[in-house]
Simulated assay, not measured.
Amino acid sequence: MPMKKGYKALVDEAMAQVKTYTVEQARAKLDDPNVQFVDVRDVRELEREGIIPGAYPAPRGMIEFWVDPESPYFKPVFGENKEFIFFCAAGWRSALTTKTVQDMGMENVAHIEGGFGAWKKAGAPVAEKVKKV
């Protein structure tokens, strides 16, 4: 059965409706205490490739539940008055995530163009993801 709307159309729509930072723009906000980077990649990706220093790991599949104060899975970090900058490996999942949380009512959200891959390629800082014991 053909898709009514494929992933490319969904990502393109999201990109047209969300704020996108270049790696350079995002990197300039790295030490800003009013900014929280949020990594929506799978935990295996984080352990394998590292993470942006100080980023909060929030798997894409849980984001709607973690950002909603009414959810039993709400994470208090998302209740803070900060700018949230989402990223994934290539910028597709983070574009969809940013659009989703924006549609849910979160303001002051953005994502990184090219994701963590572009971040690493630009030589921006990377921290090791600590594995839970």
Rank of each mutant, 00 (worst) to 15 (best):
Met3Gln: 14
Gly6Asp: 15
Gly6Asn: 15
Tyr7Asp: 10
Tyr7Glu: 14
Lys8Leu: 14
Lys8Pro: 11
Leu10Asp: 11
Val11Asp: 01
Asp12His: 00
Glu13Met: 07
Glu13Asp: 15
Ala14Pro: 08
Ala14Phe: 04
Ala14Met: 08
Ala16Met: 06
Val18Asn: 12
Thr20Pro: 07
Tyr21Asn: 01
Tyr21Glu: 04
Tyr21Pro: 03
Tyr21Gly: 00
Val23Ile: 01
Glu24Ile: 00
Glu24Thr: 07
Glu24Phe: 00
Gln25His: 09
Ala26Pro: 03
Arg27Glu: 03
Arg27Lys: 15
Ala28Arg: 15
Ala28Thr: 13
Lys29Asn: 09
Leu30Tyr: 08
Asp32Tyr: 01
Pro33Asn: 08
Pro33Phe: 06
Gln36Cys: 07
Gln36Arg: 12
Gln36Phe: 03
Phe37Met: 11
Val38Tyr: 05
Val38Leu: 09
Val40Cys: 05
Asp42Tyr: 07
Asp42Trp: 06
Val43Pro: 13
Glu45Ser: 00
Leu46Asn: 09
Leu46Asp: 12
Glu47Phe: 00
Glu47Trp: 01
Arg48Ser: 07
Arg48Cys: 01
Glu49Thr: 09
Gly50Cys: 07
Ile51Asn: 11
Ile51Met: 13
Ile51Leu: 08
Ile52Asn: 08
Ile52Val: 15
Pro53His: 09
Gly54Glu: 08
Gly54Asn: 09
Gly54His: 04
Ala58Ser: 14
Pro59Ala: 11
Arg60Phe: 15
Gly61Ser: 13
Met62Asn: 13
Ile63Gln: 02
Ile63Asp: 03
Glu64Val: 11
Trp66Cys: 09
Pro69Ile: 04
Pro69Glu: 06
Tyr73Glu: 09
Tyr73Lys: 15
Pro76Val: 06
Pro76Lys: 15
Val77Ala: 14
Gly79Leu: 04
Gly79Phe: 03
Gly79His: 05
Glu80Arg: 15
Asn81Gly: 02
Lys82Asn: 10
Phe84His: 02
Phe84Cys: 06
Ile85Gly: 01
Phe86Ala: 13
Cys88Ala: 05
Ala90Gln: 10
Gly91Asn: 02
Gly91Pro: 01
Gly91Cys: 05
Gly91Gln: 10
Ser94Ala: 11
Ala95Leu: 02
Ala95Glu: 04
Leu96Thr: 13
Leu96Phe: 06
Leu96His: 05
Lys99Thr: 02
Val101Gly: 04
Val101Thr: 04
Gln102Ala: 07
Asp103His: 00
Met104Trp: 05
Met104Ala: 11
Met104His: 06
Ala110Val: 01
Ala110Pro: 06
Ile112Leu: 05
Gly114Ala: 11
Gly115His: 03
Gly115Tyr: 10
Ala118Val: 10
Ala118Trp: 01
Trp119Ile: 10
Trp119Leu: 07
Lys121Asp: 15
Lys121Met: 09
Ala122Thr: 12
Ala122Lys: 10
Ala124Leu: 07
Val126Tyr: 08
Ala127Glu: 09
Val133Ile: 06
